[in-house]
């Protein structure tokens, strides 16, 4: 239990310090809404994860690395649940360590790649970059990307959509944009035009940013 709590605290410090690794103790206690935070801080201090000041808690190098990893895993998991499994439930919003803590590193990288190395969790908080993201930034195009990030002439298959509006969803599915459909970007400006089979379809707004495709090379 305490182990679980520590992970949570690490994520909170990381978030509050915006990467600087420092936060007010009182602020963290408030965020966690428990009275035992002092005990947890001490435990963490003993483990060499944080240094304690009078009012502040500061991550050590080891603590910082661990915090970043935990945050990254947690927020990627949220993205996965939200985008791919398409589940909108409050249960997933707060707790660290649903299942992601038990996944090996390479699985996390694979998830990250699958999602197209996302930069933000569904609540708009930053996701720390992993090795795979840094590499992808350099040379590899994301495997899965929203239509808006494709280039003219790119070909891809629809993998999932994040469109929430029922009417828009019905419109695109009615016109034939469904999972597994192969499409080509005919042009991006002035308006997005897709080539699907023998027809060309112009679309914009949420539909362009909400349709995710796996690119073909």
């Amino acid at each position: 239990m305490i182990e679980h709590r520590i992970k949570e605290v690490l994520e909170h410090i990381w978030t509050a310090g915006k990467g600087r690794g420092m936060a007010e103790m009182e602020f963290i206690s408030e965020q966690l809404r428990t009275e035992f935070t002092n005990k947890i801080f001490e435990e963490m201090n003993r483990g060499g994860l944080v240094n304690l000041d009078e009012r502040k808690v500061k991550l050590t190098h080891a603590g910082g690395e661990k915090a970043e990893l935990i945050t990254r895993r947690h927020r990627l998991a949220e993205r996965l649940i939200y985008d791919v499994l398409n589940i909108r439930s409050d249960k997933f919003e707060t707790n660290t360590c649903q299942f992601e803590c038990f996944l090996p590193d390479d699985v996390i990288s694979a998830i990250c790649t699958l999602l197209g190395h996302p930069r933000e969790c569904p609540h708009g908080k930053a996701i720390p970059m992993g090795k795979c993201c840094k590499k992808a930034r350099k040379d590899i195009k994301a495997l899965i990307a929203p239509l808006s990030e494709l280039r003219q002439g790119d070909v891809g298959r629809v993998v999932y959509t994040t469109i929430k509006d029922q009417d828009s969803l019905d419109m695109i599915s009615g016109i034939g944009i469904l999972h597994g459909i192969e499409l080509k970007v005919h042009q991006k400006t002035p308006t997005f035009v897709l080539q699907i089979g023998e027809s060309q379809i112009a679309l914009d707004g949420d539909m362009v940013s909400g349709i995710y495709v796996r690119c073909k090379n």
Binding site: D165, D167, S168, M171, I172, I175, T191, V193, S199, Q200, I201, A202, L203, D204, G205, D206, M207
Partner: peptide, 8 residues
């Protein structure tokens, strides 16, 4: 308003 979707 509404999103634009039109077949060419």
């Amino acid at each position: 308003g509404s999103d634009f979707l039109m077949e060419m």
